[in-house]
């Protein structure tokens, strides 16, 4: 089985996620696109782990998932608190660092 196919899938998925970050405007949809990009990198890591025959890639993918979960928690808290003060979840309206 040619592992390049898995890496193709990872590259295309990463590109789709990056396009979403560029195109979409709602902050939470941006979050979903970031999750897609993280998952694409996870797929590449697991493929490399399979190629090289050791488990380090899988462990790093596991760590990435945990960090992504932490990122989602903090990011959603920030988005909700921004929404409370500006009544909008659009990233175009958020142009100040202060609340």
């Amino acid at each position: 089985m040619n592992p390049v196919n898995y890496l193709y899938l990872a590259a295309l998925l990463f590109t789709i996620g990056a396009t979403g970050v560029l195109v979409r405007r709602n902050a939470i949809v941006l979050f979903m696109c970031v999750e897609l990009m993280l998952n694409a990198s996870n797929l590449a890591l697991v493929t490399f782990s399979r190629l090289h025959g050791n488990l380090d890639g899988q462990i790093i993918a596991f760590f990435t998932m945990v960090v992504a979960a932490a990122e989602v928690v903090v990011g959603l808290a920030i988005i909700v608190s921004v929404f409370r003060t500006r009544h909008s979840a659009s990233v175009d309206d958020t142009n100040l660092m202060k609340l």
Partner: peptide, 12 residues
């Protein structure tokens, strides 16, 4: 993660 994202969509 998806449940949290859905919560975020509802809250905003």
């Amino acid at each position: 993660v998806v449940v949290l994202v859905l919560f975020g969509l509802m809250l905003t």
